[in-house]
Amino acid sequence: MSIQHFRVALIPFFAAFCLPVFAHPETLVKVKDAEDQLGARVGYIELDLNSGKILESFRPEERFPMMSTFKVLLCGAVLSRVDAGQEQLGRRIHYSQNDLVEYSPVTEKHLTDGMTVRELCSAAITMSDNTAANLLLTTIGGPKELTAFLHNMGDHVTRLDRWEPELNEAIPNDERDTTMPAAMATTLRKLLTGELLTLASRQQLIDWMEADKVAGPLLRSALPAGWFIADKSGAGERGSRGIIAALGPDGKPSRIVVIYTTGSQATMDERNRQIAEIGASLIKHW
């Protein structure tokens, strides 16, 4: 067993022997301040990774656009098919120029040779490549099948209805392509620590998230040296922004954090800054 596999296998073990965790309302004060600064709703939840206990939450059962955070769930569904012998990570998928959609920095470079399922998941999570996500959605049967996968996990809230990039439209009061912070946090925890996926697939999923290259201005910008984070960000229309993450000190994750916002007129930089400040408060009061 590799060191990384050992780390993920012992996530519940280490967490069980940690000192009790206590909620700190100071972080919620910052979440509410972010709402004021952005002029928009902000949803927040913080779960203990081992027990699933909610440590703090704000608007945990209000719907927010998922945006690209759905790509972690998508690759979880792909990995479940791999575990069941219905898919192979090494299978190569070929596609054409007509398949390319807006923001496809990886797939646009491989029109000639195609990409493997493993490479597509890596591109979808680490670079948020939209064509990679659409190609992977095709392998599982489309958005409705991802929703069905989530329902089978016990998540009857999260739903995907459309493809990239239309799913980022974020129309107010439109339930399409949305989740709730509580539902997303619980589902992410199941994917990373539950028995739904094999140990190898859980490790692969967290490795992809740990290698995320496009979430630097968010929670990662607030992390002290030595902290662990595996995350996936999302951005959408109407001032929408979000991030889902597993993080913790001492090089291992111990909490799940989900943050979503929508309806702001603020710039992307300002949305990023507010999420980073929430992260800084979380870490300060850990």
Rank of each mutant, 00 (worst) to 15 (best):
191 L>V: 08
257 V>W: 14
55 L>T: 08
134 N>V: 02
254 S>W: 13
201 S>R: 00
147 T>N: 03
178 T>V: 13
77 A>R: 06
65 P>E: 10
48 D>T: 07
214 V>F: 15
197 L>N: 11
215 A>K: 15
117 V>W: 01
35 E>I: 06
101 V>W: 00
126 T>D: 06
82 V>L: 00
114 G>P: 12
219 L>N: 15
220 R>E: 11
133 A>M: 04
269 D>S: 12
78 V>I: 10
65 P>H: 02
177 D>I: 11
269 D>P: 13
86 Q>A: 07
176 R>F: 00
242 G>F: 13
127 M>D: 12
30 K>N: 15
200 A>E: 05
191 L>N: 13
263 G>Q: 03
172 P>A: 04
237 E>Q: 15
276 A>W: 15
208 W>F: 11
179 T>Q: 14
86 Q>V: 09
200 A>R: 06
166 E>G: 06
128 S>Q: 13
36 D>F: 14
218 L>P: 15
235 A>R: 13
82 V>I: 04
58 F>N: 08
168 N>H: 08
188 L>M: 00
64 F>I: 08
127 M>G: 12
226 G>R: 12
162 R>P: 01
52 G>L: 10
107 T>I: 03
259 I>N: 02
237 E>W: 04
151 H>D: 02
286 W>H: 09
217 P>G: 11
74 L>I: 08
243 I>Y: 15
88 Q>L: 06
173 N>H: 07
35 E>N: 09
194 G>Q: 05
76 G>W: 03
262 T>N: 05
231 D>W: 10
84 A>Y: 01
54 I>A: 05
202 R>L: 02
278 I>F: 14
228 F>A: 15
132 A>K: 00
88 Q>R: 08
269 D>A: 09
202 R>M: 02
106 V>Q: 09
226 G>K: 11
224 P>A: 11
255 R>G: 11
121 C>T: 00
81 R>W: 08
71 K>T: 14
101 V>E: 14
163 W>M: 13
250 D>K: 12
205 L>I: 06
258 V>L: 05
199 L>E: 08
227 W>D: 08
259 I>F: 11
256 I>Q: 11
252 K>W: 05
121 C>G: 00
182 A>E: 06
39 G>T: 11
68 S>H: 14
286 W>D: 05
268 M>T: 14
252 K>Q: 05
208 W>D: 09
222 A>S: 14
246 A>R: 11
147 T>G: 05
49 L>Q: 00
213 K>D: 15
242 G>A: 05
114 G>V: 08
51 S>H: 12
97 Q>E: 01
95 Y>A: 08
190 K>S: 14
45 I>V: 12
179 T>E: 14
264 S>R: 00
88 Q>Y: 12
171 I>S: 00
261 T>C: 05
35 E>W: 09
160 L>Y: 12
130 N>L: 10
35 E>A: 01
183 A>L: 11
81 R>L: 13
153 M>N: 05
203 Q>D: 04
141 G>R: 02
53 K>W: 04
192 L>N: 14
212 D>L: 01
47 L>V: 04
197 L>R: 00
60 P>H: 10
241 R>L: 15
269 D>T: 11
264 S>H: 04
187 T>K: 00
245 A>R: 13
222 A>P: 14
56 E>Q: 12
163 W>H: 12
80 S>Y: 14
200 A>L: 00
117 V>E: 12
276 A>K: 06
53 K>R: 09
31 V>Q: 05
264 S>D: 11
261 T>I: 01
268 M>N: 13
63 R>A: 06
285 H>E: 10
59 R>F: 13
233 S>I: 15
186 T>W: 13
225 A>N: 04
145 E>T: 14
155 D>W: 11
190 K>F: 14
85 G>S: 10
177 D>L: 08
